[in-house]
Design a protein around this nucleic acid. Structure first.
Lengths: 241, 241
DNA sequence: AAACGGCAGATGTCTATACTGGCATGAACC
DNA sequence: GGTTCATGCCAGTATAGACATCTGCCGTTT
């Protein structure tokens, strides 16, 4: 009974057990493949019942943090190889990390009033003010993505004052707060003539489009529409069930 | 103690409890919003302890099958609209669970020899035998998806003998073995004339295409190309970072 | 040397019991 | 009529104890 998790009210005990374990994994104290103390040992170390330890470990298994084998033990799992297709990514990072040069061009940066569709997406009434930006991302000088964003002024009051040739909307918004919830919708579109022009497409060509909404404090603060140039981009995911 | 779940060995009791509940939801006996019996009532009905019932309900909550409110009760949740992009899904289940009628039409079912691209996808030499199928999935009579599959004969020797009007390739292959690894690639395409015909598209329209490869025992055993009809389908994901 | 059997230790499951905190309802009060 | 408070129902969590099942190891037997 060395540690004795606090018996007050910060969080459920099994959550504290999960924290105890994930902290040791994140600091590297327990590397990949390391064998965790057995359930009984954790019971003695942490001063909680075995059912509580078991629940923590079971949930960590579901989360892919550890793997377990009956009769053998519990081990630190490989860091998740699965690429979440819906992960929040920064296209600038993507381009650079693939060894290409990234640049942007700002098409629009203004303030608009929400029409009924936008208002519904944001859970506000039509006519509400929204900041609006259209930016093209280039990879080695050729356009790869057109991003159009609508941002709640309440969330990012300085949005229009940013110099998006130096930073990017993604970074600016991330610096304010991390979203607590994200919705992604992926579909195929035949782009409009405007988008075709921005993407240097001679003729309309099927493009991937990703629509993202992010929530902070229970409210939609950003809606983004990202159109990727033709067949030059695809989403890839791998996972082990 | 009316029902008394079997105390023999088919599955864990909490799994049986989950089954008891999901069956009633799937048959429609308990519709969306229906209030489930309380934990104590389920204890009496099923003859298991409350912890067992609680675990079953907790896992069903995580799965999005039910929603719970402390002090109020447990309710049948809205059928999950969200399609996990990386999840392995059966489109037949998708269509049926959204309240539509599913049917199929078999276009091709034969044995071919791999060209160099296919051989590379399967990690085999060109000329290797592969089973090949093209099937159209209909939702309420209108085509929603064209699936073209290439299957390793070594993995599924009976593939060509299946009656895919009764079952589906997905189910047949799932019954043989669960893949240990899956790769998904999503992109937008302008479908070929053949695909357009199969999808009843008057003119080429941007379509979502999903390419899937699955591994069993370290070898690629299936490559599937799924083309979804135009804007009638999209992938949606929600997550909390 | 190989095969078998038993044992210890690990996870998986289940039960009975208890306490906590959230919520709705209805009664009593203002 | 409106407000407040007590009560009961409900899910959330926690524990101790027990049994089940699987695995790896070791000592014995063949």
């Amino acid at each position: 009974m060395a540690t004795t998790l606090g018996k007050d009210r910060p969080a459920a005990r099994y959550e504290q057990v999960k924290l105890y374990i994930t902290e040791r994994i994140e600091t590297g104290e327990w590397g990949v493949g390391h064998r965790l103390p057995s359930e009984s040992e954790l019971v003695e170390i942490l001063g909680v019942s075995r059912m509580t330890v078991h629940r923590a470990l079971r949930e960590l298994t579901v989360d892919g943090v550890v793997t377990r084998a009956q009769g053998v033990g519990t081990f630190v799992a490989e860091p998740a190889q699965r690429v979440e297709l819906l992960e929040l990514r920064d296209i600038a990072d993507d381009i650079v990390s693939n060894g290409h040069v990234h640049s942007t061009r700002i098409i629009t940066l203004d303030s608009i009033r929400a029409d009924s569709d936008l208002a519904m997406a944001f859970g506000q009434r039509p006519g509400a003010r929204l900041f609006h930006s259209i930016i093209v991302h280039y990879e080695d000088g050729t356009p790869l993505q057109v991003e159009e964003r609508f941002v709640s002024p309440h969330f990012a009051p300085d949005y229009l004052d940013q110099d998006f040739t130096l930073t990017h909307p993604h970074r600016h918004l991330s610096a304010i707060a991390h979203p607590e919830e994200i919705e992604h919708v992926v579909f195929a579109v035949t782009p409009s003539l405007d988008i075709c022009t921005l993407l240097d497409l001679d003729e309309p060509e099927a493009c991937l489009q990703l629509m993202r909404r992010t929530w902070v404090d229970g409210r939609v603060v950003m809606k983004g529409v990202f159109t990727y140039s033709g067949s030059r981009y695809s989403f890839v995911g791998r996972y082990r069930p």
